[in-house]
Computed example of a mutant assay.
Amino acid sequence: MGRPKKQVVMKEPIRLREQVLKNGNRSLYLDIYHNGKRTYNFLKLYLVPETDMSSKIMNANTLAQANAIKEEMILDLTNRIAGIKDKSHKARMPFCSWMGIYAENAKKSCAESSKRWLDRSVEEVASYDSEITLGDVDKEFITGFMEHLASRSALNTDRKKITKSTVFLYLCYVRAALNYAVRESVIPKSPFKGITRSSLSIKEHKREYLTVEEIKRLIATPCHREDIKGAFLFSCFSGLRIYDIMSLHWKDIVKTATHWQVEIIQYKTGVELFLPLNMNARKWLPERPENATAEDKVFPRLTRSYGQTLGTWMKNAGITKDITFHAGRHSFATLCLTAGIDIYTTSQLLGHTTIRHTQRYARIINTKKDEAVSLFDGVFE
């Protein structure tokens, strides 16, 4: 009896590998071996240390995205070897995988802030339906996805509904991914045509803000977390978002003989911001510890888990408005415009990428002007 032949295992031409970085993250890359040559394709996707459920979910989505790119490249390589140019087979892949492929292609020429939204869009599609194929995406799927986004809570501790503008930002990336599929001859036409903002009725959230008198009441009211009180009032007088305050380091506060200013890259937009700090904003910065380094955070204990503390503090101050941390930024914007600062300067102070965002606050101020002028109506009757 002859010795059984050893089974030959065919190696994949493309393998997904990891490289450990100095910060503890793992960079994902593709190891490609074809025609006796080895090349590497770094995907700019990273696995983070799994310290909680959120990081585990993030890594699972990142791995799924990386594997989808790998499978896509294997298919392309196999088809090139076989002389096959038809790309219609790609329509059978999960739509969330195609979103990942589109995202990686789009990241080559987009801003840092857009890269984060691209990743979030892939995660949202995968969370909604990870099984539907690219070829099966239709208007019913898109409408259902919109309704899903509009009805779910925002991903923060306030648990508010996400805004209409955020829903349509996600939809813009879905539409772009479908258009990319058309350009690549994967699908004949996009099912997105005909879907507009009017397709979905979402009530816009009221932009709550605090008046001068309400801010004075908050200053006079104790809060059991002084760091949250200080950070919120700092937002009211600087206009910084909570993520920018959470990541603020002592090195980001630059002092000269005449003034102080914050110099940061904004988390949301990725745009550089040079923000002068007025005396009220400086007042609510904590004292810098003697042993603090330039890399230490200004508000080291501040996290997104502020909701209950903020709500209790507002209640104790007699404020019944539905106030979130972002209301501090709204308050800064309305105070600027009410004080007579022009809309362009206010836009620069807020770090807006377009003045259109600032005009929403101007509409609030115009309403206040209308209310003030209407007081004359009964005076001379």
Rank of each mutant, 00 (worst) to 15 (best):
L178G: 07
L178M: 14
L178H: 03
N179F: 14
N179C: 07
N179I: 02
Y180D: 08
Y180M: 14
Y180R: 04
A181Y: 02
A181F: 04
V182G: 01
V182H: 03
V182F: 02
R183F: 10
R183W: 06
R183Q: 05
E184S: 11
E184Y: 07
E184T: 10
S185F: 07
V186A: 05
I187A: 03
I187H: 01
P188W: 00
P188E: 13
P188H: 03
K189E: 14
S190Y: 12
S190D: 04
S190C: 09
P191K: 00
F192A: 14
K193I: 04
G194T: 05
G194E: 13
G194K: 03
G194F: 15
I195S: 01
R197F: 10
S198P: 00
S198G: 08
S198R: 15
S198H: 09
S199H: 15
S199E: 10
L200D: 08
S201K: 11
S201Y: 13
S201V: 09
S201R: 11
I202Q: 00
I202K: 01
K203F: 05
K203V: 09
K203C: 05
E204V: 13
H205Y: 13
K206A: 13
K206Q: 05
K206V: 10
R207V: 06
R207Q: 02
R207T: 07
E208S: 05
E208G: 03
Y209T: 03
Y209R: 12
Y209A: 15
L210F: 06
L210E: 12
L210Y: 12
T211E: 12
T211Y: 04
V212F: 06
V212P: 02
V212C: 14
E213Q: 08
E213H: 02
E213A: 15
E213F: 13
E214C: 13
E214Q: 14
E214N: 09
I215S: 12
I215M: 12
K216P: 08
K216W: 06
R217H: 15
L218T: 06
L218G: 10
L218S: 12
I219C: 08
I219L: 04
I219R: 14
I219N: 13
A220M: 06
T221Q: 06
P222G: 09
P222H: 15
C223H: 09
C223R: 06
C223T: 12
H224M: 00
R225W: 13
E226V: 08
E226W: 05
E226N: 04
E226D: 07
D227P: 09
I228Y: 11
I228S: 01
I228F: 09
I228E: 13
I228P: 11
K229N: 05
K229C: 15
K229E: 12
G230Q: 02
G230R: 10
G230A: 07
A231Y: 01
A231D: 08
F232S: 05
F232A: 12
L233C: 06
L233T: 10
F234C: 05
S235E: 10
S235M: 04
C236W: 01
C236T: 05
F237M: 14
S238Y: 15
S238R: 01
S238A: 04
G239N: 01
G239V: 01
G239R: 00
L240F: 02
L240E: 09
I242V: 06
I242R: 02
I242T: 06
I242W: 02
I242F: 11
Y243G: 15
Y243T: 08
Y243W: 14
D244A: 14
D244Y: 04
D244L: 07
D244R: 02
I245G: 11
I245C: 09
M246P: 07
M246I: 15
